[in-house]
Structures are given as structure tokens and as C-alpha cells.
């Protein structure tokens, strides 16, 4: 279980508070107006931001003061997910070995991971030679090798077209299924949230709310979310 216990962050005029619990293996969509603090919530999980007060735990262990790489978390960002100067194999390999030195065995695992995301034989290319969808698949392959139980997606596929985006979400779901991952995905699109077939955290008015069943929530949205979805 991932819990936020009375967590508060203040940066000038901006505040976010969160007191909630996420089940292990949950698939969470994060919805809410721009600037409400969706990315802040993920940054707190990922370790890029330390709360002013409160604590964050995973499986009962306090992870509030761990550095990003010490946390049980893999992240796929909105952009800059791959190093353009490294080949696909080396990029994915960083998920296994942060020092970049790959053994023959590591290379074989990287090749398997690439095959799983439909990029068999593309290991020697550079990110610049790939399409946007293929680049997302490389990032997913790396996240799969990182062996972290929580996967964060920070509007990771927002640059892709609708069909491609659905395809990527299905791929993420398959990966989550196979590795029993806990998923947290920021999105602007309620259809993405429905596609996850899980729960949704609404972030609005300075607060991240307890996750609720997505279909029920979208059928009868609270005022803040309703205004955002209608707007």
C-alpha cells in the first residue's frame, strides 16, 4: 500500500495537501485542472519534491526522505524520456545498470524487453531515428527492466494521437499485469482514465482526494471535477 499521511507542500501561493491510501496493484488515473498539483503529487511519489510536513510510506516503510533512485518508483515523463546520444539498447540498459556497463546477459534481457514492446531488432538505433510511439515503447521497456513496483506516467503519451495513445495504455496495462505494478497516470482525458479500468484521484482546490472508482466518479462527478470536464 502507498500512503500519504497528512502530506503538505507549500510553494508561494500554491498548496497541495494529501491524506490518502492507494492499494498495491491499483491502477490510478489522476485528473484535475491545470496547475492544481497533479505533477506535484507525482513528484512527491517520485522523490523530486520533499513535503513540508507529513510522510509517505510504501508497504509500511517511510520513503519520505529517500532519493529518487532509492525509491520503489519508475517514472515516464512527459518528454525527454530518452538520452538522444545513446542507442536504444543503452537507453533501456540504464534501467538495469545505472552505470551503463552491460554484460552479455544484460544485453539479452534488454533484447527481450524490446521484443515485449514490439521493437525487436531496433536496439542499435538512436532515439532520433524512431517515431514518437516507438520512443514511448522504449521508455516502457526500460521501466519494465527497472524492477520497481510503482510506475508513474506524467502525461507520458500526451503527444501521441488518440489511437496510438490507447495502444500505449493497453501496453502499460499488460506490463502492469505481468509485473504486478501499481500504476499512477496523470491525464487530461477522461477516456484514458476509463481505459485503465481502475480508480481515479481528483486533484483540485489544493487537495488530492482519496481514490474512487473511475466509472462511478465520472458518472457523477463532484463540482470541481465537473467544472473542469465541462470547461
Amino acid at each position: 500500500m502507498l500512503t500519504f499521511e497528512d502530506v503538505r507542500v507549500t510553494r508561494g501561493d500554491f498548496t497541495l495537501s494529501a491524506d490518502l491510501a492507494i492499494e498495491t496493484g491499483a491502477r490510478i488515473a489522476i485528473l484535475g485542472p491545470s496547475g492544481a498539483g497533479k505533477s506535484t503529487l507525482l513528484a512527491l511519489v517520485g522523490g523530486f519534491l520533499t513535503p513540508d510536513s507529513g510522510r509517505i510510506t510504501w508497504g509500511g516503510t517511510d520513503i519520505t526522505d529517500l532519493t529518487p533512485s532509492e525509491r520503489p518508483v519508475a517514472t515516464i515523463f512527459q518528454d525527454n524520456n530518452l538520452f538522444p546520444h545513446l542507442t536504444v539498447t543503452r537507453n533501456v540498459g540504464l534501467g538495469l545498470r545505472p552505470n551503463g556497463r552491460l554484460s552479455a546477459d544484460d544485453r539479452a534481457r534488454v533484447a527481450d524487453a524490446l521484443r515485449d514492446v514490439g521493437l525487436a531488432g531496433m536496439g542499435d538505433r538512436k532515439p532520433g531515428d524512431l517515431s514518437g510511439g516507438q520512443q514511448s515503447r522504449v521508455a516502457l521497456a526500460r521501466a519494465g527492466l527497472q524492477d520497481k513496483p510503482i510506475l508513474l506516467l506524467d502525461e507520458a503519451f500526451s503527444a501521441l494521437g488518440p489511437a496510438l495513445k490507447s495502444e500505449m495504455i493497453d501496453l502499460v496495462l499488460r506490463l502492469a499485469q505481468a509485473r504486478d505494478l501499481t500504476l499512477l497516470m496523470i491525464t487530461h482525458d477522461p477516456d484514458d482514465a476509463r481505459r485503465l479500468k481502475g480508480q481515479t484521484i481528483v486533484v483540485a482546490d489544493g487537495r488530492a482526494h482519496q481514490p474512487q472508482d473511475t466509472d462511478a466518479l465520472l458518472a457523477d462527478p463532484p463540482p470541481a471535477l465537473g467544472a473542469y470536464l465541462a470547461g
Partner: peptide
């Protein structure tokens, strides 16, 4: 600014960060 968060989340530190990220770029 561009690649720091990714490198940090992957645990690229010290010499590895210099060799794999900073120097090539």
C-alpha cells in the same frame, strides 16, 4: 534542466552521470 530528472530517477550518479549524460551532451 532537460535530462536531470530522468537521470536522477534512473540513479545516474557521479562519474556515470558525467560519462553517460553530461560529457556526451
Amino acid at each position: 534542466a532537460q535530462f536531470g530528472p530522468l537521470a536522477t530517477s534512473l540513479g545516474l550518479r557521479g562519474w556515470a552521470r558525467l560519462r553517460l549524460l553530461i560529457l556526451p551532451r
